[in-house]
Computed example of a mutant assay.
Amino acid sequence: MGVSSESADEPGWDVSPEDEVAPVVEATGRQIRLWREAAGMRVVEFGRAIGYGEDLVRKVERGARIPRADFLDRADDVLNAEGRLRAFKEDMEKARYPKKVRELKMLEERAVELLLYSNHNIHGLLQTEEYARALFGTWRPTLSQDGLERAVAARMARRTIFSRSPVPELSFVQEEVTLRRPVGGNLVHRRQLEHLREMAELTQVEFQVMPTARADHPGAAGRIQVLKFGDGTAVGRTDDEFNGRPVSDPRQLRILELRYGIIRAQALSPGESLAFIEQVLGET
Score class of each variant (00 low, 15 high):
Met1Cys: 01
Gly2Lys: 12
Val3Phe: 03
Ser4Glu: 08
Ser5Glu: 15
Glu6Leu: 15
Ala8Pro: 05
Glu10Asp: 13
Pro11Thr: 08
Trp13His: 08
Pro17Ile: 09
Pro17Val: 10
Val21Gly: 00
Ala22Val: 06
Val25Glu: 09
Val25Leu: 06
Gly29Glu: 09
Arg30Ser: 15
Gln31Pro: 00
Gln31Asp: 11
Gln31Thr: 08
Ile32Tyr: 04
Ile32Pro: 10
Arg33Trp: 07
Trp35Gln: 14
Arg42His: 06
Glu45Asp: 15
Ala49Cys: 06
Tyr52Pro: 06
Leu56Thr: 07
Glu61His: 11
Glu61Phe: 07
Arg62Leu: 02
Arg62Lys: 11
Arg65Val: 01
Ile66Lys: 03
Pro67Arg: 04
Arg68Ile: 00
Asp70Trp: 11
Phe71Pro: 05
Phe71Thr: 05
Asp73Ser: 09
Asp76Lys: 06
Val78Trp: 02
Leu79Thr: 08
Ala81Leu: 08
Glu82Ser: 13
Glu82Tyr: 04
Arg84Ala: 15
Arg84Cys: 03
Phe88Thr: 10
Lys89Asp: 00
Asp91Lys: 15
Lys94Asp: 07
Ala95Thr: 02
Ala95Glu: 03
Ala95Trp: 01
Arg96Glu: 09
Tyr97Leu: 01
Pro98Cys: 07
Lys99Val: 13
Glu103Gln: 14
Leu104Asp: 01
Lys105Glu: 11
Glu109Gln: 13
Leu114Ala: 14
Tyr117Glu: 10
Tyr117Trp: 10
His120Thr: 15
Asn121Ile: 13
His123Ala: 15
Gly124Phe: 09
Gly124Val: 07
Leu125Asp: 04
Leu125Ala: 06
Gln127Ser: 06
Glu129Pro: 04
Glu129Phe: 04
Leu135Gln: 13
Thr138Val: 02
Thr138Phe: 10
Gln145Met: 09
Asp146Lys: 03
Asp146Trp: 02
Leu148Pro: 15
Ala154Thr: 00
Ala154His: 01
Ala154Arg: 00
Arg155Asp: 07
Ala157Gln: 09
Arg158Trp: 02
Arg159His: 13
Phe162Leu: 05
Arg164Ile: 01
Pro166Gly: 01
Pro166His: 02
Val167Lys: 05
Glu169Pro: 00
Ser171Arg: 09
Phe172His: 09
Gln174Phe: 11
Glu175Phe: 08
Thr178Gly: 06
Leu179Tyr: 11
Pro182Thr: 03
Leu193Pro: 12
Glu194Pro: 09
Ala200Lys: 02
Glu201Phe: 03
Leu202Gln: 14
Val205Leu: 07
Glu206Leu: 11
Thr212His: 13
Ala215Pro: 00
Asp216Phe: 14
His217Cys: 09
Gly219Met: 02
Ala220Pro: 00
Arg223Asn: 02
Ile224Ala: 04
Val226Asn: 04
Gly232Trp: 13
Thr233Tyr: 07
Ala234Val: 05
Gly236Met: 04
Arg237Trp: 10
Arg237Val: 12
Thr238Met: 10
Asp239His: 05
Asp240His: 12
Asp240Asn: 12
Asn243Phe: 12
Gly244Thr: 03
Gly244Gln: 01
Val247Leu: 03
Asp249Gln: 06
Pro250Tyr: 08
Arg254Leu: 11
Ile255Cys: 01
Glu257Arg: 14
Tyr260Ala: 05
Gly261Phe: 09
Ala267Val: 02
Ala267Arg: 02
Pro270Ala: 05
Glu272Arg: 14
Ser273Phe: 12
Glu278Val: 10
Gln279Asn: 15
Glu283Gly: 08
